[in-house]
């Protein structure tokens, strides 16, 4: 149990997907202008990433390896992710229109979120088992959502700051992200192993 906890902490804080591993930066920069948007995106990504790490694990272990087709991994995973996103969209649409309203616009964006494909590939690289894969996907997504929400709140405040002209917009956003990353360095070594 504590092993999974450590894996989670590691994925959320120590090896944060966005700030340390540089995954999912485009949505990080793109959907962090408003706190509400960021919350929605975080929620949607968490859902999809967890599910995608499960599905890609299954695809790898039950399809690609038995057929010795590992070289099709990228192709397979991206299709698996596309299907998962589509499926999620349909399920959410049917079961909870309210949730769909929140997540709907973000779901298509997630297919091209490299954090999702990234987590699938990292799981393979790290030889994670089924539960580990899911935990890692979930943790990574939580880490993504956490910094996304924090960053969105900061950007809302940033929007009103007297930033020099050349630095306005993406530039100061990236510098802020840099300082966030600097702060997250403090978590280094929190999880050993």
């Amino acid at each position: 149990m504590s092993e999974f906890l450590l894996l989670l902490v590691s994925a959320i804080l120590v090896n944060n997907f966005v700030l340390v591993k540089f995954l999912g930066l485009c949505p990080f920069m793109g959907t962090s202008k408003k706190l509400d948007t960021a919350l929605g995106m975080g929620l949607a990504t968490t859902f999809v990433m967890t599910l995608a790490s499960l599905c890609s694990y299954v695809a790898e272990q039950w399809v690609l390896i038995p057929l010795d087709l590992q070289y099709l991994r990228t192709l397979t995973f991206i299709l698996v992710i596309a299907v998962v996103v589509q499926f999620t969209e349909m399920v959410v649409h049917k079961t909870s229109p309210a949730l769909y309203r929140v997540l709907g616009i973000f779901l298509p964006l997630i297919t091209t979120n490299c954090a999702v494909l990234g987590v699938a590939l990292l799981n393979i690289n790290a030889n994670h088992g089924l539960i580990e894969s899911v935990a890692y996907g979930f943790g990574g997504a939580l880490g993504f959502s956490l910094v996304l929400v924090l960053f969105a709140a900061m950007r809302e405040r940033l929007a009103t700051a007297d930033v020099p002209k050349a630095f306005q917009g993406a530039s100061i956003g990236l510098i802020t992200a840099g300082l966030m990353s600097l702060a997250f360095m403090g978590f280094a070594g929190l999880v050993r192993g």
Binding site: V20, A166, Q168, G173, L174, I175, A177, L179
Partner: peptide, 19 residues
């Protein structure tokens, strides 16, 4: 060369382009 540096340097490069 650490992660924060990547963000900061890109931020400055973009600012330079804007300037």
């Amino acid at each position: 060369i650490l992660p924060p540096g990547a963000f900061l340097v890109l931020g400055f490069v973009i600012a330079a382009k804007n300037a």
